[in-house]
Design a protein around this nucleic acid. Structure first.
Lengths: 142, 142
DNA sequence: CAGAATCCAATAGGATACTG
DNA sequence: CAGTATCCTATTGGATTCTG
């Protein structure tokens, strides 16, 4: 009996379907989401907002290594995509508060999936690296 | 009754814990995984391998816009992390086959979670963008 | 406080040519 | 076929300065 292709989660099929038409590679849903998640901050900011709404500088303090430039840019994109709601209160100086929308909150779920995968496999990956690096250096010294 | 912080999936707490110590921001498990996923190809290659093992040039054909340089680099990293197994058959010319390890296959699950989130929310996000862009251009023309 | 604007550095990644 | 090596470009993102 020939080994059937192991279809995992339908990801491969979905991906193949779009690889077929070279033209619209960037319309592939897989690539779409990955290019989003790819950005260093577009996931970190929603995580920072996961517990409660924060003001601009509170987010900066929550993510110490983000620059104001990047935070502004990231917040605009998240707002544009409907993941984050921006509210301005006409105080002096102005108070601006950012919070996740329901859509934004829903993103936390798949992200949590990724993070728990990372935690669950951390040791196994570290171990694999040790083995790989040892073999590689053995090869070099042989 | 005061509104309690909405703890979603424990992500925020996990994240805060690491933000506290500025020193080891890059040891934060959240960041670790995101920097991996961040790379354009480190997720695409496992997806391409999800159905069956592929040879080097088969992967290139599956991901038409990857360069040989990037593919080699990506495969080495995946191999190092124990996600991909590389097998050389001493034919002429040599045959090299790449396949996902069990660890590698397990990564497909959280990725699929992300992709199905993207598909489920696609229309809502498009809609949000239309609204945002219209308001923005209204503001510019006012 | 909450940005906008400008300039600059680092990194990711592509194109091409070459090799066993 | 399965890479390696070199060079070059583009994108990402940080630092700094300025403003309402």
């Amino acid at each position: 009996m020939p080994r059937l292709p192991q279809e995992n989660h339908g990801l491969g099929a979905l991906f193949e379907q779009w690889s077929a038409n070279e033209r619209d590679l960037d319309k592939c849903p897989v690539r779409r989401v990955l290019s989003k998640i790819g950005n260093r901050w577009t996931t970190l900011v929603p995580i920072a907002l996961s517990q409660r709404p924060l003001r601009f500088n509170e987010i900066v303090r929550a993510i110490p290594d983000i620059s104001k430039r990047m935070l502004t840019q990231t917040l605009r994109e998240l707002e544009r995509d409907g993941l984050v709601l921006r509210q301005v209160f006409p105080t002096k100086p102005p108070t601006v508060e950012y919070q996740l929308t329901e859509l934004g909150k829903s993103l936390l779920e798949p992200i949590a999936g990724l993070v728990s995968w990372a935690e669950a496999t951390r040791l196994e990956i570290e171990q694999a690296r040790l083995v790989f690096d040892r073999v590689a250096s053995d090869g070099a010294n042989a």
